[in-house]
């Protein structure tokens, strides 16, 4: 019985993507907080039903058993927790939602209240209003020196330009294109948040790994006549193409 496990035409794509999650930060005593939550849920029916919710327990002094209990209470209220933020490792147990970190604050989310009185025609569906959402603008990051071994530059918002080199053992991850005015000896990943038109440019290609939109190529997959030359790499379909630049 043979089964072809690898299919050269299709590589696995690993992408990053960010979503806006609702964050709940419970406060002690928990029974009072749950009562307030029940009160809120009664006034806006189904608010938590379809939403990804992150539980922030940074300020909460509870142990593993209490956290388990809290999760059960929330689950009974149809609040599905997708992740737990700020939990100490001692609080976590197998089967709990994964620990999250590195969250960035966004605007407050207002819970639109639904009228408990029936019979009135709902003219507007209940909606979530997000205040002060930043307007998306094209951004770029310029690094004026070399990225040394062991350092990584991660910039999901746009292009990254490196005026020096990227050393062996260093990495640059950009949401947009990567421009390197020195040698690329480490790793460069462009279009990390799903940008298929992102490219990688460098003065001297000696990369350990290049990736665009989750599709990657190792050093040995690169054509030997490109090595040591100025080059650009881009994506066509599911393949990374590369060419010399003059």
């Amino acid at each position: 019985m043979t089964k072809v496990l690898t299919d050269d035409d299709r590589s696995i794509r690993i992408k990053g993507r960010s979503f806006l999650a609702v964050v709940l930060s419970p406060a002690l005593p928990l029974d009072q907080w749950l009562a307030r939550l029940d009160d809120l849920a009664a006034r806006s029916a189904g608010f938590f039903l379809t939403r990804p919710v992150v539980l922030d327990v940074t300020e909460l002094q509870i142990d593993r058993a209490q956290l388990k209990e809290l999760l059960a209470e929330l689950s009974a209220r149809n609040v599905s927790i997708m992740g737990i933020e700020g939990a100490r490792p001692s609080m976590m147990a197998p089967g709990m939602p994964p620990a999250l970190k590195g969250g960035r604050p966004s605007g407050d989310i207002e819970v639109k209240q639904t009228e408990p009185v029936s019979g009135e025609v709902q003219t507007e569906p209940p909606r979530v209003e997000i205040t002060e959402q930043p307007r998306p603008t094209l951004q770029s990051l310029v690094i004026k020196e070399s990225v040394r071994s062991g350092q990584s530059v991660i910039f999901a918002e746009g292009d990254v330009t490196i005026l020096g080199s990227v050393s062996s053992g260093a990495e640059v991850i950009a949401g947009g294109s990567v421009h390197i005015y020195g040698s690329l000896r480490g790793r460069a990943m462009a279009g990390s948040v799903g940008n298929t038109s992102a490219r990688i440019f460098c003065r001297k290609l000696e990369a350990e790994l290049v990736a665009i939109d989750g599709i990657y190529k190792m050093a040995e997959d690169l054509s030997p006549d490109l090595i040591g030359h100025p080059a650009q790499l881009w994506l066509e379909g599911d393949a990374i193409l590369a060419d010399k630049m003059n």
């Binding site: 071994s149 062991g150 350092q151 050393s167 062996s168 053992g169 260093a170």
Partner: peptide, 13 residues
């Protein structure tokens, strides 16, 4: 050389 490169990064940070 690679280890020195790492150290230079630390010297700069």
């Amino acid at each position: 050389v690679r280890d020195s490169d790492r150290i230079i990064g630390l010297l700069d940070s």
